[in-house]
């Protein structure tokens, strides 16, 4: 009476534990996670490309944004720092492969040492990125914003180099103070007040005849941002409505608002991947020390986290190209 289904099982294919594509279940799933994560990052980077192509004649130039190098304050050194970060990450990728290789040979101590080096490299990279963010958020020169959301920067007429607001802005007496819960409405927050008001910047600009305005627009011929002459600069500055110092998610002193948003989001998402990679590598590192994989008889877990770690490196290669080079 019982309905029985007669399933002819081929133990070799369906019984679990075997490897149709010569890769274990865990490794294969790590790969397919990487595929989906790669598509996520592609989505972000292509969205960045979309915004950039949409504003192709006014997008910020990377060399004018990222030019800091540790201990070289005031020196214009574009590319060098981010190149260093790239080398650190590629190198930590190499120690990871060496750990995987030592794992195949069941050399526990070597695996541990290489894992530790990988973790160190990752930690240094995350720290470097934090420093990069700090410079980006703090800004150095300051700028003003027009009603239409265009950023106007200040440059010296002779050298063409940027001039900081603190160099020329005047100080006018003001009774405007920071709004906080105890002296105003308790349910209203106010962002920290900026150092200068628009009027102070305008007055200081008029008093310094060697200053010019650098606009967002790129000269198609030279590839540089267009600098206005003195009369046009004064006319343009009279339209300013905001002072911008550094960068946040709403406005930034480097140019297009979307630029900072994408910078924070993409490098932040990548940095979060590196951070979680460091944490996962740390867990595996302690398991190696405890001899978990020695007892298990193979070091495949090291290989799986290695895949994730290399993927993080792979993504950085693309972020590096599209944010700093192109």
């Amino acid at each position: 009476m019982q309905a029985t289904t007669n399933i002819v099982e081929n133990e070799n294919v369906w019984d679990g534990g075997n490897k149709p594509l010569n890769a274990s279940y865990g490794k294969m799933m790590m790969w397919f996670f990487i595929v989906s994560d790669a598509l996520t990052f592609s989505g972000f980077l292509v969205a960045y490309g979309f915004s950039r192509f949409k504003n192709i004649d006014s997008w910020p130039i990377a060399d004018e944004v990222f030019y800091h190098f540790p201990f070289l304050h005031g020196v214009n050194a574009p590319m060098y720092y981010v190149a260093l970060m790239t080398f650190i990450l590629i190198f930590s990728s190499v120690t990871m492969v060496l750990a995987v290789d030592a794992g195949h040979k069941m050399q526990k101590n070597k695996v541990a040492v290489y894992m530790l080096l990988t973790i160190l490299g990752g930690a240094v990279f995350v720290g470097s990125q934090a420093w990069e963010w700090k410079n980006f958020i703090k800004g150095e020169y300051g700028a003003v914003e027009t009603k239409g959301g265009q950023i106007l920067q200040f440059v010296s007429a002779d050298s063409g180099e940027r001039v900081a607001l603190s160099y020329f802005a005047t100080t006018q007496p003001t009774d405007r103070s920071q709004h906080s819960a105890y002296n105003g409405l308790w349910y209203v927050d106010e962002a920290t007040l900026l150092t200068y008001t628009v009027a102070e910047v305008q007055q200081g600009f008029l008093a310094n005849p060697d200053l010019r305005i650098k606009t967002e627009m790129i000269d198609a011929g030279t590839g540089h941002k267009i600098v206005l002459d003195r009369a046009a600069s004064e006319a343009k500055l009279s339209q300013a409505v905001n002072v911008v110092e550094g960068a946040n998610l709403i406005r930034n002193e480097y140019g297009n608002r979307l630029f900072a948003d994408f910078f924070f989001f993409i490098t932040g998402f990548h940095g979060f991947h590196v951070f979680s990679g460091v944490v996962i590598n740390g867990i595996i590192f302690f398991n190696v020390l405890l001899g978990t994989y020695e007892r298990r008889g193979h070091y495949e877990m090291v290989e799986k986290v290695g895949l994730y770690w290399h993927f993080v490196d792979l993504v950085w290669v693309f972020v590096f190209t599209f944010f700093y080079l192109v």
């Binding site: 397919f32 790669a38 598509l39 292509v46 979309f50 949409k54």
Partner: peptide, 28 residues
């Protein structure tokens, strides 16, 4: 195994790049 990893990326990503950049250029 290699193909099942690489082919989806090789098909989807260039397609995404193509449609979005063409659209962005149009909006520009």
């Amino acid at each position: 195994f290699t193909s099942s990893i690489v082919l989806p990326l090789l098909i989807l990503i260039p397609y995404l790049i193509f449609i979005l950049l063409v659209e962005a250029d149009y909006i520009y």
